[in-house]
Nucleic acid binder design. Structure first.
Lengths: 193, 193
DNA sequence: CTTGACATGTAACAATTGTTACATGTAACG
DNA sequence: CGTTACATGTAACAATTGTTACATGTCAAG
């Protein structure tokens, strides 16, 4: 087993992530991937253990990156209403340059649902980590149960509308729906206070 | 090209649908599928044109079935609030026996996003048909734009929370979020009237 | 009986798959 | 020098893939 501080592994992982973002995982095969990242199929298995493990490792890194960005949005927008943060994140995630993150998430997620054994490490926490991040920006005056339900609602709504946008390409319709959610969310939060 | 009224094709399609619901499409290969439905790979290609066309045809039938069921819910619940219909459909779709429909939808959807050429016929309308169904049960007093946004919101929210439930297995949390949505949706509808 | 459309059967193609065994290199450190 | 850990190279395995060419069967309508 290679050491955890190997930077060859890290380099390969970063290059592979780029490849995954461009090509998806459904038709992924190790040899073309290895060729693109300047390596060999043999070595990808050596460094990551298996194809599935490589994909899972890549997805965990990607998730962390996106969540780091969300955390930065929260930090920069301290004091903003949760509904505004949701809209800011929506704008960030649905920008042309970030769409490929969403696409990859949805692809791997769908595969993971049908084959939890293969991608279980990714699936676990795929939603719950987001819900926890969202809970943290909801008013502390709410009960734990209310925060949980409202955070889940916000995450679910944004995720569903992202999927809509990616599928239909109709950004205006999806963004209008997000705006409607924002006002409804504000009302909901006010009513619980 | 085989005629459209061939019932051999129809039988094979129905049997294939059952197989897809149990096994997903990612690891699907024609020979095992053919064996299970009492046919040969050769004939599946003959009847459907290609593997991808078979999957797409199956998905369109499945979507129609689920949407027919939604329409039946609407018919039986005439006069109910939209938020109640949403919750009824949520209960139907997340029941143990129907979960596999959701799983298959999300799997194919993810694949379709990364490869629109392959599953384009399915992707087109995957969301818009649902949004139209939802628009139809919103008050006619709303403006067209409002109906569109609110319908998109309702569909997106339910879809996102379905994905959450399937991923996390936490039905209570997801259902609580749906309930929160229902009350918010009612408020939203009232405010527009 | 014959035409014709639908269905099936047999068999092959050419390419690719993830993974592994075995051996070699490299470079830092004692 | 020699040990050790990490990295790479070569090559093969065994199985499977979607699709196609070509031939045969089935069965109702003319």
């Amino acid at each position: 087993m290679p050491s955890e501080k190997s930077h060859r592994r890290e380099d390969l992982l970063n290059a592979s992530i780029e490849y995954l973002l461009e090509n998806g995982v459904a038709d992924l095969s190790l040899r073309p991937l290895a060729a693109k990242v300047g390596s060999k199929a043999r070595l990808l298995v050596y460094h990551f253990g298996s194809k599935d493990a490589l994909i899972t490792d890549a997805m965990l890194v990607i998730r962390q990156r996106v969540q780091d960005n969300f955390a930065a949005l929260v930090r920069d927008g301290r004091g903003q209403k949760p509904s505004q943060l949701v809209q800011d994140f929506w704008a960030w995630a649905t920008s042309k340059q970030h769409e490929r993150y969403l696409r990859l998430f949805f692809e791997v997620h769908g595969l993971a649902l049908q084959n939890p054994k293969q991608y279980g490490r990714y699936l676990e926490g795929a939603f719950t980590t987001w819900v926890e991040l969202m809970e943290a920006i909801l008013p502390a005056t709410l009960s734990r149960a209310e925060r949980r339900a409202l955070a889940s609602l916000a995450v679910g709504t944004v995720v569903g509308l992202m999927l809509d946008y990616l599928s239909s390409g109709d950004k205006k319709r999806a963004s209008d729906a997000v705006a409607q959610f924002a006002t409804a969310f504000d009302v909901l939060l006010r009513s619980k206070q």
